Simulated scan of single mutants.
Amino acid sequence: MRDRIARLLATAGTGDFLGARFDAGLAWVHFPEGLGGLGAPRELQQLVDRELAHTPQPNIGRQAIGLGMAAPTILAFGTPEQQKRFLRPLYTGEEIWCQLFSEPGAGSDLATLATRAVRDGDEWIVDGQKVWTSGAHHARWAILVARTDPDVPKHRGLTYFACDMHAPGVEVRPLRQITGEAEFNEVFLTGVRLGDDLRLGEIGDGWRVAQTTLMNERVAIGGTPGRQGGGMIGIVAGTWRDQPALRTPELHQRLLKLWVEAEVTRLSAVRLREQLAAGQPGPEGSGMKLSFAKLNQELTGLDLELRRDLGYDDWSFRRSDEVDMLGRGPGYRYLRAKGNSIEGGTSEILRTIIAERVLGLPSEPRADKDVPWKDLPR
């Protein structure tokens, strides 16, 4: 592996380094050869990332959905042609992806979504509305779940597509956030035609495909290991050191408690990444995402409290290219963290997943489980 890394560093130019890295099989080493990987054990990715830490990297802020959600889904359910077509430009950042899942009437209960896809020969005609779509304003492609059979129960009538965001009938409108930015959007799909070659998985099997996306999404949000004392806990500790007048016993105790929680979360993320070497993520990712949301909200709150003399008055309307939790001011971080317990699955839903799939508790009653979607009240 080190020989391959050395050859890449010796031969690749800076202009298309990410493309060269993909072609060398060092993008995701556990992916198959020719698709950015080598078919190698997943744990070797840590070695690769460490050796290439000072080279050009994917823009995580802009490419998070493509890298963390679309790529593993395309690998698991895409045809060889789809994998060849999408994975390389996804990794290099030439094509940005967004996620067309949530709808105004289908958020936590995603399976009730109403966006329709009707077959027309070798194409599908898509009509509906999606909401809270991060980065749709600069996305080239989207992962889309639509209803293709309203006559069966809600989980069984869904189909999964790659949606061309430049296709006629796709309209993106900004949603302004409490931070004054618009990283989210609502997306209207009116008579959008998608070829059947853009379908991922079988017709009617979209819920199973979407579960792969959602499990990887939760790992991407909450399961990325950091260094000890890094990230938000490092920022809060730095604020503490810079504000000696605020070092009360009560605040000191809160900081110590959060430091311990941050370290437990970091080590749990390391363990989760090791488990991923054996296959696709399971419900453990939901626990990590739940822990991340709670911890980040508490840390940003304490940081703002320690800087109580610093207000937040930047309410200018901007189009945000990426989420930047660490590189922005304390007011932005505090406000943006409020969304952590909603995005990627609400904390309430994640607790239900943990209760049922990890702890083995009885499932919640689901009266609509076997009712055709068209008969559900809306």
Rank of each mutant, 00 (worst) to 15 (best):
M1N: 01
A6I: 01
R7V: 03
L9Y: 03
T11C: 04
A12T: 06
T14S: 11
T14V: 06
G15C: 02
D16W: 05
F17M: 04
G19A: 11
A20E: 15
F22Y: 15
G25V: 03
H30V: 00
F31M: 02
P32Y: 01
E33A: 14
E43I: 00
L47A: 03
V48W: 08
R50E: 11
R50C: 00
L52M: 06
T55L: 02
Q57A: 12
I65L: 14
I65N: 04
A71E: 04
T73Q: 08
F77V: 03
T79H: 02
Q82L: 02
Q83G: 01
Q83P: 06
L87Y: 01
L90V: 04
G93K: 10
E94R: 15
E95T: 14
E95Q: 14
W97C: 05
W97A: 09
C98K: 09
G105K: 12
L110F: 07
T112M: 10
L113D: 05
R119Y: 00
R119K: 15
I125S: 00
K130V: 10
V131Y: 01
W132P: 00
T133A: 13
S134L: 12
G135N: 12
H137W: 08
H138G: 07
W141P: 02
L144K: 07
V145A: 12
T148R: 05
P153K: 09
H155S: 10
L158G: 09
F161R: 06
M165L: 13
H166Q: 13
A167L: 04
E171N: 03
L175P: 01
E183A: 06
N185C: 15
N185V: 04
L194Q: 15
L200W: 03
L200K: 02
E202C: 01
E202I: 00
G206F: 09
R208N: 15
L214D: 05
R218F: 00
A220S: 14
I221C: 06
G222I: 03
G223K: 08
T224N: 09
R227V: 14
Q228Y: 04
G230I: 13
I235T: 13
V236I: 08
G238A: 12
G238R: 09
A245S: 14
L246S: 10
R254P: 03
W259C: 07
V264S: 02
V264D: 13
V264E: 15
T265Y: 08
T265I: 00
A269I: 01
A269F: 00
V270Q: 14
R271K: 12
Q275W: 04
A278E: 14
G279R: 10
P281Q: 07
P281K: 05
E284I: 01
E284Q: 12
E284Y: 01
K289F: 01
L290T: 03
S291T: 13
K294E: 14
R307P: 09
R307Q: 15
R308F: 13
L310V: 13
D313Q: 00
D314N: 12
R319L: 13
D321L: 15
D321F: 07
E322C: 07
V323N: 10
G327Q: 04
G329I: 01
L335R: 09
L335K: 08
G339R: 07
S341V: 06
S341K: 12
I342Y: 11
G344I: 07
G344C: 08
S347A: 13
S347P: 00
S347M: 08
L350K: 14
I353H: 07
A355K: 06
A355S: 14
E356V: 13
P362E: 09
R366L: 03
A367M: 05
K374Y: 09
